[in-house]
Design a protein around this nucleic acid. Structure first.
Lengths: 146, 146
DNA sequence: ATATCTGCAAAAGTTTTGCTAAAGT
DNA sequence: ACTTTAGCAAAACTTTTGCAGATAT
């Protein structure tokens, strides 16, 4: 991971390029987002930032998270947050997800070569199974773009 | 996929084994869940069931979905629904997710052999990238189970 | 007869939105 | 000076919960 200062400079540069004001709140939100090696929820970011800017509001965190996502400075871990998606297919399978309409298509497990990890990444993690998502744009949405 | 009648019988058998009453609502909810080849939201299931049982309530759908999930009749497509998880890591990487505490650990892309699809599963789907989740129990949660 | 379930309504949790004052450019 | 943003509060959306009457065992 890059040192925090260079990330900070990159952050300011990207803000200016995008026409985003470099506010104190925005800077701290971004710094905390990077500083936690984790994948925090907006609420968790809010808690960390509040320790430094007690008057900050949760709404400001949400607005900036959205701004950062739109700008590509952040990603969401999963496209499926926000609403539960149910799966009645009991056969082992994976998913193909359209990032536009969010439709989900099944891929039988037999269609994908088994995942192979080169090293065991975290000590003591007991692996249950692998879940593969093929992300992209489905035929219908691709056609609709013309 | 299995014919709907045999799924129906299996469903009743599993309900009886679990001590779950085989109600009309429950039966229709399960049937619709299986019938859509999709991965519907609870709201979408509610709409389909309402066409057959106009008096059904959304709460009943939620309660039964929860019951079915607990019983293992259904799965959720993603462990990350319900709250946004943010990712500031711009290097290509995958994730290891603890199904107990929901913590997320990064795996550098270089640690995993590239995914290989045997056939192109859906016509016209434009693949963007692959996202791999290693699901299991993290070291801390495994230790806490003793 | 007893236990479980449904429907309704209220509540809780997450995220978005509108507005005015404040801050950044 | 002009534009964008922060803070606040209200609202929207998803999901959970409590309870009395209805249904399944």
């Amino acid at each position: 991971m890059q040192p925090i200062e260079s990330l900070q400079q990159q952050f300011e540069a990207r803000c200016r390029k995008l026409g985003l004001a470099v506010t104190h709140q925005r800077t701290v939100i971004y710094r905390e987002l990077v500083a936690t090696g984790e994948h925090p929820t907006p609420e968790a970011v809010y808690e960390r930032v509040k320790a430094q800017i007690p008057a900050i509001s949760l709404g400001t965190v949400y607005k900036n998270v959205k701004t950062f996502l739109d700008a590509g400075l952040l990603k969401e871990v999963s496209l499926h947050h926000g609403t539960l998606r149910l799966d009645a297919n009991t056969d082992p399978h994976h998913h193909m997800v359209c990032r536009q309409c969010r439709r989900i298509f099944d891929i039988p497990e037999s269609e994908i070569e088994p995942v192979r990890l080169k090293n065991l990444p975290e000590s003591g993690f007991q692996i249950d199974r692998f879940s593969i998502e093929v992300l992209g744009v489905c035929g219908a949405c691709a056609a609709a773009r013309e």
